[in-house]
Amino acid sequence: MKILRSLAAGLIIFGISSFHAQKSDLGAWYMYFGNNKISKKLNWHNEIQYRNFDAGGDLEQLLIRTGIGYDLAENNNNILLGYGFILSQPYANGEKTENIEHRIFQQYITKQKFGRFYLQHRYRLEQRFLEDDFRMRFRYFLGLNIPINNKELVPKTFYASAYNEIFLHFDSPVFDRNRVYGALGYVINKNMRIEAGYMNQIQENRNRGQIQIGFYNNIPFTK
């Protein structure tokens, strides 16, 4: 257990030190994900992501998403309708610019378990209302969690986490980006967990790494 705690602390320390050593090449994403039951079948999704070009302060993107989902099966096969607000501050010719995007999205999530392997498939369709453009995009996410010190993802469990997500446009160019992620997570209790890891984002003309720290809250709003 002490070794696992040391690994978790080491990963976070490595991320913080890397921010200062590679400001131009390594970004940081701080993320909160809420998925809260509001009835037996309905859930409220709420999400905030604060994405930086460096450790903090040089904002790349602020993303806020929310939506209402419905379980087609007990705690599984969830369909959701959502909305996202995205504030981006990219650099153009060395100067900061600002763009605002409004996004409507529909998604389907299904979960599977094979022994110690927890799988999640997410299919998402996005309608993106940019300031001077409208685009549609499809995303497929495949995630995997594997408990380390317990057989199940019960409280006080460390786990390995990985995912791959591909983004495809409905027009040309079809390929938008691909994200590959690996992390170490910890289950705090039955409704909360935390992860720290590294994500590599591949785009047509850019390949950039991100340190990610995410907090997950599934506290139900029902008895």
Rank of each mutant, 00 (worst) to 15 (best):
K151M: 04
K151E: 06
K151L: 02
K151H: 03
K151C: 03
K151D: 09
E152L: 00
V154Y: 01
P155N: 03
T157A: 05
F158H: 01
F158P: 00
F158V: 00
Y159N: 02
Y159I: 00
A160T: 04
S161Y: 08
A162Y: 04
Y163C: 08
Y163W: 12
N164C: 05
N164D: 14
N164P: 04
E165Q: 07
E165L: 06
I166G: 07
F167Y: 11
L168G: 09
L168F: 09
H169E: 14
H169P: 07
H169T: 10
F170G: 07
F170W: 10
D171T: 14
S172K: 15
S172C: 11
P173S: 14
V174Y: 13
F175Q: 08
F175W: 11
F175Y: 13
F175I: 06
D176Y: 09
D176F: 08
D176G: 07
D176T: 06
D176N: 10
N178E: 14
N178R: 10
N178V: 07
N178W: 07
R179N: 15
R179L: 13
R179Y: 15
R179F: 15
V180G: 13
V180N: 11
Y181I: 05
G182R: 10
G182H: 12
A183G: 08
A183W: 12
A183T: 12
A183H: 13
L184P: 02
L184Q: 09
L184H: 10
L184E: 05
G185Q: 13
G185H: 14
G185A: 15
Y186V: 05
Y186A: 09
V187T: 11
V187W: 06
V187Y: 09
